[in-house]
Write a protein that binds this DNA or RNA. Structure first.
Length: 272
DNA sequence: ATCCGAACCTGACGGC
DNA sequence: TGCCGTCAGGTTCGGA
């Protein structure tokens, strides 16, 4: 479900509510999501720790604590929000952290594919080790991108989903950025011209930041922590628009499957 | 090294 | 109604 813009939306919403509070206790209902840690161990590591910050790296959420970091990945259906009330977990709530301000931070995840891990200060955040450029913080030149793609014979679309190149791009925004840059999704990455690389380095951050401005995209699962939907789905140029007219040239948008994921593009605007 | 498909899960939806 | 197949915003793993 969530890509960089949705994760960023979540981080911005919960940050002012939870930073400065202390975790009183924690509860987890699906131990598998914490592996290799156990619910008991994790709870005791977190107890009485103050939350000092909330940040994002790619699609990971980092809840910074006094003595470590809680690393959360929402995968396909994860949601994170704060709420008050009831003592028991509601439907699909897989983790709950009781905070000193009377609220709880809740991790809700229908499909239970999300992950939660704790790292002590000084310990390497292993999942972030091979993460690529942060699209909104690093300015990448066309030449740099072209150099990175030199050895990649795979199609550019699945390459954009590889988090070790650019972190945070997912299935929606990969299609959107390629349409903006007028690049065919099946073009081998190494064959992109310098001009195409140049456009991609401009449009990837542009598409992502426009989506953040709209609070992300809501197709089915994604909800902002306040329960409202994002609205960037109304701005999609190609994603989920099969057979609809291209907004540049009116030819019907085409869908294809690459690496088991749907890709949408305009056959006329995005030539190989 | 590279690539593909399967696997991990649940729920919604369309077709029959 | 109900059953069945398909699909979903992500990532990892094993085998070819």
């Amino acid at each position: 479900m969530p890509e960089l813009p949705e994760v960023e939306t979540v981080v911005r919403a919960i940050r002012p509510i939870i930073v400065g509070t202390t975790i009183l206790r924690a509860e987890f209902s699906v131990p598998r999501q914490l592996e290799p840690q156990s619910p008991r161990r994790l709870s005791s590591s977190l107890r009485n720790q103050k939350i000092v910050g909330v940040t994002r790296r790619g699609k990971y959420i980092l809840v910074q604590l006094e003595r470590g970091v809680l690393l959360i990945h929402l995968r396909m259906s994860g949601r994170l929000y704060t709420r008050a009330g009831e003592n028991r977990l509601a439907a699909h709530e897989r983790a709950r952290w009781w905070l000193s301000n009377g609220l709880s931070l809740v991790f809700n995840d229908v499909r239970t594919l999300g992950t939660i891990r704790y790292f002590k200060s000084g310990e390497e955040l292993e999942p972030l080790r091979d993460m690529g450029w942060e699209p909104l913080e690093e300015t990448i030149s066309g030449s740099e991108l072209q150099r990175e793609l030199r050895a990649r014979s795979m199609a550019i679309k699945p390459v954009l989903l590889d988090q070790s190149l650019w972190a945070g791009i997912g299935n929606i925004y990969a299609s959107e950025a390629l349409w903006e840059a007028k690049i065919h999704p099946a073009k081998p990455a190494k064959k992109l011209t310098h001009a195409e690389c140049d456009r991609l380095t401009r449009f990837v951050p542009m598409v992502l930041s426009r989506a953040i401005d709209q609070g992300g995209s809501t197709l089915r699962d994604f909800m902002r922590p306040d329960g409202t939907a994002g609205s960037y789905q109304h701005e999609f140029r190609v994603y989920d628009r099969e057979a609809d007219p291209c907004l540049r040239c009116n030819s019907p948008i085409v869908k294809l499957v690459q690496s088991q994921r749907s890709t949408y593009y305009c056959k006329n605007c995005q030539k190989k």
